[in-house]
């Protein structure tokens, strides 16, 4: 059990008569890169919001980092990182200020915060850009900074909501190097994406269709199971049967 960082069982969320998330059950292990796929409207975002402690479920159980989503969502928030597809940095703050701000939000301060900030700047090779406004940086850099900021406080899990939207393939590949690095350090990565090549990079992939998990396994086994040679093939076979869209 100590290795399980996310555990859900029959997790359901309804909005009125609409069942956005329908009894999903899965487990994510420590240090795993877990791909969370699904067409638009399949319920990914709702499920992710529940796991981040932003929404409470209608029924079922879910534990994140060992904390219950019903009663301990404040504790959950302390142990997770989050990065959205908008990269969510403050454009009119300097790189260093952004890092310090987000670190401060997660309770890092003083010498510890300064040290971590400088370490991060060095690791990303941003020494010359540290005092530039984030707004003036290219998209790929913003994305790297946003991700590094999301794991600055060493969370147990980092949630990435379509983290590579609008970024070119080379930068995307570099970004995945950062993800692997984080996973090697023991941070669990929970990532949603629309790019099927990225799905191949994940340790395990779940595909949601109409609020339920239609498939969950390693990319290799999924391809075997659906008798196709790419994740795209798997995804299309499942998504074609979807009743909901947008």
């Amino acid at each position: 059990m100590t290795d399980t960082v996310i555990h859900t069982n029959g997790l359901t969320r309804k909005f009125g008569d609409f069942i956005a998330v329908n009894a999903i059950s899965f487990e994510v292990k420590k240090g795993e890169i877990f791909g969370f796929l699904g067409a638009n409207g399949a319920g990914k975002t709702t499920a992710m919001k529940i796991l981040c402690g932003l929404l409470s479920p209608s029924s079922g159980e879910a534990k994140v980092a060992g904390y219950d989503v019903y009663t301990q969502n404040e504790s959950i928030k302390k142990h997770i990182g989050y990065m959205s597809q908008k990269f969510s940095l403050y454009e009119n703050l300097k790189v260093r200020e952004n890092i310090k701000f987000y670190g401060g939000i997660y309770g890092l301060r003083g010498a510890d915060l300064n040290q971590k900030t400088e370490q991060l700047i060095n690791r990303l090779g941003l020494e010359n850009e540290a005092d530039k406004l984030v707004g003036s940086l290219p998209l790929g850099w913003k994305q790297k900074i946003a991700f590094s900021v999301a794991i600055l406080h060493k969370p147990k899990i980092v949630f990435l909501d379509e983290p590579t939207g609008g970024v070119d393939p080379v930068t995307r590949r570099q970004f995945w190097d950062l993800i692997y690095e984080a996973a090697n350090e023991g941070i669990t990565v929970f990532v949603t994406t629309h790019y099927m090549d990225e799905a191949e990079y994940c340790d395990r992939v779940s595909i949601m269709v109409d609020g339920s998990i239609a498939a969950l396994d390693t990319p290799e086994k999924l391809k075997e199971q659906f008798k196709t040679n790419s994740m795209e093939g798997v995804f299309l076979q499942l998504a074609r049967n979807a009743k909901r869209s947008e």
Partner: peptide, 13 residues
């Protein structure tokens, strides 16, 4: 609009 609110809400703040 910039999505930073989302990040703030996910944080322990």
């Amino acid at each position: 609009e910039t999505g930073t609110m989302e990040v703030l809400l996910v944080s322990p703040m």
